[in-house]
C-alpha cells in the first residue's frame, strides 16, 4: 500500500474545487486572448477584449473563494506578508506560497487589461489607458507577462495537490499538466460561447474551436499519463468515481470532439460542445479533489 494512505484529509472541498475551476478559466481566458492578439494577423478585437473582460472578474472570484475557505479568513494577508516582521512572505518551493503571489500579480495584470479592454470600447476614455492598449509596447509587455502568469495560475493548482502526501494527488506528477490543459480547453470553450453570443466573426470562433480541439486531445493524453502514473493506486477509482471519470472523458472530451468534427453547418457554431467541455472541466476537478478526500 502506498504510504499516502496513512495521511489525513485537508478538507478541501467545494470552495477549493470551484477555485481550481475558475482559476483555470481566469488564467486560460487571458492566455487565449493574448495568443489571439499576438499571433492572429487580423483578430476580431471583440473576441480578444472578451478574453480580458472575463478574466478579471473570474480572478476576483478566485481570491474570494480562497479567502472564505481559510480557517481564519481575516489573516489571508499572512500568505503574502509575514505577520511578525511585515516582510514579504515568499517560499518558492511551496506551491501555495508561490501561487498566492502569482494570483496577486496576475490580478494586477488582469485588472489593467480589463481597463484597457474597456477603454478600447470607448469607456472609460482615459488617456493613460491608451498606453496599455495591446498594440503599444507597454500593453504588449503587460499582456505577455499576464499570459505567462495566467498559465501558471491555471496549472499550479494541480502541482499544489501533487506536492502533498495525499493518495492520488501525491501519487502522480501529471495533475499540474492535466489542470493546465483543462484550463486552456475550458477557457476556449467559454470564449466560443461568449463570442457566439455577442456575434463575433465566425472565423474568430473557428480559430478558437481549432485551438479547443487541440487542447482537448492534449487533455486526453495528459489524463492517460496521469492514470498510468498512478499504477496500483488507480484501483481506488474502481467504483463510482471511476464511472464519473469515464463519463467526464466521454461527455466532456470525446463527445465535444465528435460534435466539432461532425457539425453540418460550420458557419453556425454550436453551443452544446463548449457547454460539455466546461462541465467536463468542472467534473474533472470534482473527481480529483473529492475522490482523494473520501479516502
Amino acid at each position: 500500500m502506498s504510504s499516502t494512505f496513512f495521511t489525513a484529509s485537508p478538507h478541501w472541498q467545494w470552495l477549493i474545487t470551484a477555485y481550481f475551476f475558475f482559476g483555470g478559466l481566469a488564467g486560460g481566458s487571458y492566455f487565449v486572448a493574448t495568443m489571439m492578439h499576438v499571433f492572429a494577423k487580423s483578430p476580431d478585437r471583440r473576441m480578444v477584449r472578451v478574453g480580458y473582460l472575463v478574466s478579471f472578474p473570474l480572478v476576483c472570484l478566485c481570491g474570494l473563494l480562497l479567502t472564505v475557505d481559510l480557517g481564519r479568513p481575516e489573516r489571508f494577508w499572512h500568505m503574502l506578508i509575514q505577520s511578525e516582521t511585515l516582510r514579504p512572505m515568499i517560499k518558492t518551493y511551496s506551491p501555495m506560497s508561490s501561487g498566492a503571489w502569482v494570483l496577486l500579480l496576475f490580478s494586477g495584470c488582469a485588472f489593467l487589461s480589463f481597463l484597457a479592454a474597456l477603454a478600447e470600447g470607448g469607456r472609460p476614455d482615459w488617456p493613460i489607458l491608451r498606453r496599455l492598449d495591446p498594440t503599444a509596447w507597454l500593453g504588449r509587455l503587460l499582456t505577455v507577462i499576464g499570459a505567462l502568469l495566467g498559465l501558471y495560475l491555471a496549472g499550479y493548482t494541480g502541482v499544489l495537490l501533487s506536492v502533498t502526501n495525499r493518495p492520488i494527488w501525491a501519487d502522480t506528477s501529471f495533475l499540474g499538466l492535466t489542470f493546465l490543459v483543462s484550463g486552456a480547453s475550458t477557457s476556449a470553450a467559454l470564449l466560443i460561447l461568449l463570442g457566439s453570443w455577442i456575434g463575433v466573426s465566425p472565423r474568430s470562433v473557428h480559430s478558437l474551436e481549432r485551438f479547443d480541439r487541440s487542447a482537448l486531445i492534449l487533455e486526453v493524453l495528459a489524463l492517460a499519463a496521469l492514470i498510468a502514473s498512478l499504477g496500483r493506486v488507480a484501483a481506488v477509482w474502481l467504483n463510482g468515481w471511476g464511472l464519473l471519470l469515464a463519463a467526464m472523458v466521454l461527455g466532456g472530451i470525446a463527445l465535444p470532439l465528435v460534435l466539432a468534427w461532425r457539425r453540418p453547418a460550420p458557419d453556425r457554431p454550436g453551443w452544446i460542445g463548449p457547454m460539455l467541455v466546461l462541465f467536463g472541466g468542472l467534473l474533472l476537478r470534482v473527481i480529483i479533489v473529492f475522490s482523494s478526500d473520501r479516502l
Partner: peptide, 22 residues
C-alpha cells in the same frame, strides 16, 4: 517540468490555431 512542457505545447498549438486564421 510536465506543467512547463504543457505550457509550451499549448503555446505552439495556439500559434498554429490562431496564425492560420490570420
Amino acid at each position: 517540468l510536465w506543467s512547463t512542457l504543457g505550457a509550451v505545447a499549448l503555446t505552439i498549438l495556439g500559434v498554429f490555431s490562431f496564425r492560420e486564421r490570420g
